[in-house]
Every structure is written in C-alpha cells, then in structure tokens.
Design a protein around this nucleic acid. Structure first.
Lengths: 342, 342
DNA sequence: CGGATGGGGGTAACCGGTTACCATCACCCT
DNA sequence: AGGGTGATGGTAACCGGTTACCCCCATCCG
C-alpha cells in the first residue's frame, strides 16, 4: 500500500541501488540523479520500511531496557538517562518492566522476544546469585546496579555498600547511635538491598556498635507506602531509635511521613537519610539527606558497553573473578533531614 | 551464525512450513512431527528472528509512546500504565522523549523512524492548534491529554478544565478567595496548561470573583524546581493570597516547599492544591489535595484505540468537529493541604 | 587513438521469516 | 471401487530493504 523503494526507482527512472544510495547519503551520486530521486520520494510520499532494513542489516538500532518499575522515581530517572545516552549513539530504547520478579527477568533473558532488539540492559532485582549462567546467552547484555551475579557479563554498578556506609557514618558523626534501618532483602537475592545493608553494618562495626536486629524494619515494597508501613510497624513495636536509614529515597520519604504522623520531628527527634537522590529528596519537608549516585555516568557507560558489544568492538566481558565491574561515582548530599537539632 | 528455520527444518527432516506451523501453534501437526521439530529447535538453540517475522507479517508488535519527559512522575506513571495495557494486548512499547519540544514532536510524526513500530501514542506538549494536519499521516496515532489539536485523529483526554474547576471550587468552598495560580502556558500551545487555567477561571467567574493577574506565577518548567521558583518570585513581589493552585502536582509540591522556606504554613496560611495525584501527593507534608485522573483508564483506552486502528478494526477517527474525544474520569482527592485551619 | 582508471549505476542474490497453492494420503461414504 | 474430505506438509513466491558483483562510459594519459 505505501510506496517501496522500487516504486521510487521506477518513477525516478533509476535502479533501486541508486535510490538506496541516495537515502543512505552515499557520496557518489550525480546531483541531477539525486534530485530526480528526491523528487520521486517526495511525490510518492515514500517512507523507508525499517523492518526490511533491519532484516537486511542484521541490526535493528533498538536496545531493550528492563527495569522493575517505571513508577519508582529512581528507575524513571535512570530510564531517562539511558534513553538519552542511547539516542546520542543512534539507538532507540524499548522499555520492559519486570516488576522485580525473578520469573519475568529469566523469561526476558530466554525469550525470543529479545531478538527484537540488538541488546539488553537489565536492572535485575529478583535474580539470585546462582542464576549467573542464564545471563551467558551470547546475546549482548549489560547488568545495572548489581554485582553479585556470578557471570561473564558486563556490569555497571553503583557504590551501594560504600554509599550507605558513608551516609551511615554521617549519621554517626552527628551523634546518632541508634540507627534504624528501613528496608530488607530476600535471602539469596543479593541486590542493592543486600549490598546497602552491608554498608550500614560496616559503618556500625567500624564505630564499635552492635547491630540491634530489632531496629530493622523489613519492607513489603520499595515504595513510599512500603517505607511508611515499615516505619509504622517499627513504631508500633516501641523500638527506640534516633535516626532512620532508608535503603532508598522513597522508603526514607515514606518513613518520614510515618514519623510525622506519629508526632515525631525530623531531624530533632529522628534524623533520616536515604539513597538515590531522586528529585523529591530536595523538595520534601524536611529535605532529605541522601547518597547521589551518578546516574548519567551509569547510563552512559552501560550504553557504551552495550553498543560496543553489539557492533563487535569493545572488550568481551571477562570472567567475574578477574574483572571488577565498573563502579560509578557518588556524592553524599547532606540536607535538612540530618541537620542540627533545633 | 545463529540457527534459522531452515536449519531446524533440515535437522528435523521436515519443511520450513512445518517448523513454522509448530512454532506458531498451528493445530494440524502430527504429534510425532511436532516432537521432532521441538527437539531440533532445542538441539540447535534456535530462536526466531523477529525482524524477519515482522517484515513478512507487516506488523512489528511494537508501539511507540512519545511523552515529554519520563522523569516527570506523571509521565512515568502514565508510561507504566501504557506499557501494562499494551502488554495485555501483546504489544511492546518503545518510549521516546520529546522534551516537550514542538520540533521533536513534529519530527517524530514525520520521521521514517516511526515505521519501526505499528503505531504512536503521542502526548503532545509543544504542538500548536494549527499543527493538526501534521497528524493526519495515515499512520495510526492516538493523542493523549490534549484536545485542541484540530485533526482527524483519535484523542483520549482527561477532564483538564472540569478537574481544575472542581478543585478551585473546593478552595472557594473552604473560604479561600485569593487563589494564586502556579503555572502558565505558551500562547498557541493549547495544552493542559491552557485547559486547566480555563477551569480555574471558570470557577472564579462562577463565584463572581475577578481574576487578579498579579496572582499568577508563570513557570519555566513543569518541575518541582519550576514550581518552587515561580512561588518564590510571587512571594518576592509581595502579592497576597490565601491559596495556591498548581497546574500539576510537581508544581504544587515545589510551591509548598517555597512556602515552607518562606515561613508560611500550609494549610493555615495558604491552602495548596495540585492536579495529577502522583504518588508523592499522598506522602508529602502536608499531603496534597489534588485531582486524580484515571490514568489506567486513559492508558487502556488509548492502547485499545490504537491497536484497533493497527489491525484495521475499530472506527476511523472522525472529524474533530463531529466527534467528542474520549474523556477519562477523575476524582477530587482532598488531603491535608486544604484541611481546616488549625 | 587505444587503453587504463574510476565514478555512477544496474542486476540479482540475500536477510529469515510467512503463506498461497498444491500434492499426498488415510479414511469414509455410497 | 470411485470419489469426496480433511489432515498433513512440501515448494516457492513474497515482504522491502542492502550490497556483491559487474558493466558502461567519460576522462585522462602516453
């Protein structure tokens, strides 16, 4: 129904090769010929069929980004950065939501569907450490934000452990000693939850403090509601604490809300800190102290690694024993929620 | 390099047609034959080439969602819903960010690139009312959240005007009379900014109030920072007001932050309301009164219209003069930010 | 003036699926 | 027994690009 290259060729009285040469900016085309072809394209309203081109080229120019959930601000901001970085390299991004489920993540890796795109950037959540081999499919894959998956796959991670350690040390430095933790992780799913908890524990240990397991508020969901619920449960148990570390910002913001409803003041009664530095962290009341990973750097690096694998340049992923993953920078952002007591 | 259908056929000693029949669940295949084919697929690690299938079928199974910016929570939540609704119909979603720029939106409509997918859901921001004809390209398009673009294209909109009118009436009902407006729109770009402003004006007029242009705080950006900056500018001008209506939630949240920094209390000194009901609206301090459009309904309807156009079923878009767009439901969510004065 | 050189452009194979069309074959009916 | 019917699956054209390979011709040179 719509015009093809052959229609254009016929109309311009040239061959398809010439039309192809014109649309692909091949230099050796006589100006007069080029004009005729362009005129024919215009008259017919010709638009190239990208699917046909992809089949022929063996590349689609699209990559898949698989994240748990777009409505979590961290992932929305990450997706924004990835889309931008991909665009800078001429790629378009197809977004898949896994909901953080291991099954969906595995399905995504195994499915034919991924063949729709040239590569996959996966932000795993449910995958276990034993799932490494599933990643080694020969298909270009870059893992985000995760370190413990033992596989020959490129990793781009943030300093989860160092970041929470730094922010925990900050809480200790302002004199807090009973720091509650809002967040948890499933045993085996050694993702950000696990790694960030380690940073918290390291900081406590370095300060010579014992961890009080009662001060951990396990969560159902990595959302504000999840953080608020966890905080309410902790408050209901009557546990004492003078600071709260949320394993990410939405948890911390949810916890702040619960503290507020409980009549506690932040930071006077309880200091609060998070991780991610989502936009709201700077606008909440009080504004939230947090760890800001360099998302743009993560996105750029992940896209760079992936596109290099796609075109066959770039290093093969090394064995996980030998190669350290790429770790993005972070900075500690101190705001009102850990300010001086009034 | 990777196995094709012909390789599988050779190995299973059948024809490609039979392999195709097996992978496409065609019923009339003898069980023994099916087994042989499946075994061959397994042994060769065959994965279907979706690009080839798309070329042959003339459909890709993908749709494009073009929105201004994913990091704006409203659009992230919308994208989440659209991806979910598309998945329910067997489609995958490719996300493009326009940054709200008219040029990018026009480019997206005109570009060959869109031929990578079967249809486009566009949430326009910069397009002007005169740009209607650009939308009528014969390519399946559904417009979101916009009404004023005069074109034979399916529209799915939210009740922008009715919603802001309702929330403004609520502010009037709790006794506020000097309601400032945070938000603005470019002349000609008759989008949500314009339509929502109309609702505000209608409510004022219905209450017999004059609009005081000094109480409008124009914005640079539809972000929290934009809302905060606009609010600060308004405060600096010394304008008096007892309520603030943000044209969306992030503007309202930003404005609340600026009010807080200025030492004003919400809702005692100033009541604040927004539009969208993003997740943070329920967790801010104070929580935010807002209008909640039914995003899931919008997404489902848009995807339904688009996929029906794609398969050629469903109604042709009617002339804009004759057909009312589909308007999604909304509810007013009253929260602390417009609560009773202490 | 014959031949070398290289730009310009045509022909047709190829990418890897789908499917129209056709050929068998088993089975059943009259 | 002849023929109709439906299940099964083979052959080859087709989707619409890209590109290897080849040819032609203008230009330039000795």
């Amino acid at each position: 129904m719509s015009a093809t290259m052959r229609d254009v060729a016929r109309r311009a009285e040239v061959s398809v090769k010439t039309v192809s040469n014109v649309v692909n900016q091949f230099p050796h085309v006589r100006p007069a010929t080029r004009e005729r072809v362009l005129a024919a394209i215009d008259e017919l309203g010709y638009q190239m069929n990208f699917t046909a081109r992809s089949l022929s080229l063996g590349r689609t120019g699209m990559i898949t980004l698989a994240i748990p959930k777009l409505r979590l601000p961290y992932f929305a901001e990450l997706a924004d950065e990835v889309i931008g970085a991909a665009e800078a390299r001429g790629y378009t991004v197809l977004v898949e939501q896994t909901g953080g489920s291991r099954e969906r993540e595995i399905e995504l890796l195994a499915s034919d569907r991924r063949r729709m795109t040239d590569g996959l950037i996966l932000s795993p959540f449910g995958l276990r450490s034993g799932d490494g081999p599933r990643l080694e499919t020969g298909f270009p894959v870059v893992l985000l934000g995760e370190r413990s998956l033992h596989a020959r796959v490129h990793h781009v991670v943030m300093a989860n452990t160092a970041g929470t350690r730094a922010v925990t040390e900050h809480l200790l430095a302002i004199g807090r000693r009973r720091i509650a933790l809002v967040g948890s992780y499933e045993p085996g799913a050694e993702g950000a939850g696990y790694l960030r908890t380690q940073g918290y524990l390291e900081a406590l240990a370095a300060a010579g403090l014992e961890r009080d397991p009662a001060r951990t508020a396990p969560i159902e969901d990595w959302t504000m509601a999840g953080g608020a619920d966890a905080m309410r449960a902790l408050l209901a148990r009557g546990v004492e604490f003078d600071a709260v570390l949320g394993l990410n910002d939405v948890l911390a913001l949810g916890a702040m809300r619960a503290l507020f409803e409980h009549g506690l003041s932040v930071p006077d009664d309880v200091a609060v800190a998070g991780f991610d530095d989502i936009e709201e962290a700077g606008f909440s009341r009080p504004s939230l102290t947090t760890v800001r990973p360099d998302r743009a750097q993560i996105a750029r690096h992940a896209v760079a690694l992936l596109t290099e694998r796609i075109v066959g340049a770039g290093p093969e992923p090394a064995s996980p024993d030998r190669e350290a993953p790429y770790v993005a920078d972070y900075v500690l952002r101190v705001r009102e929620s850990t300010g001086p007591r009034a």
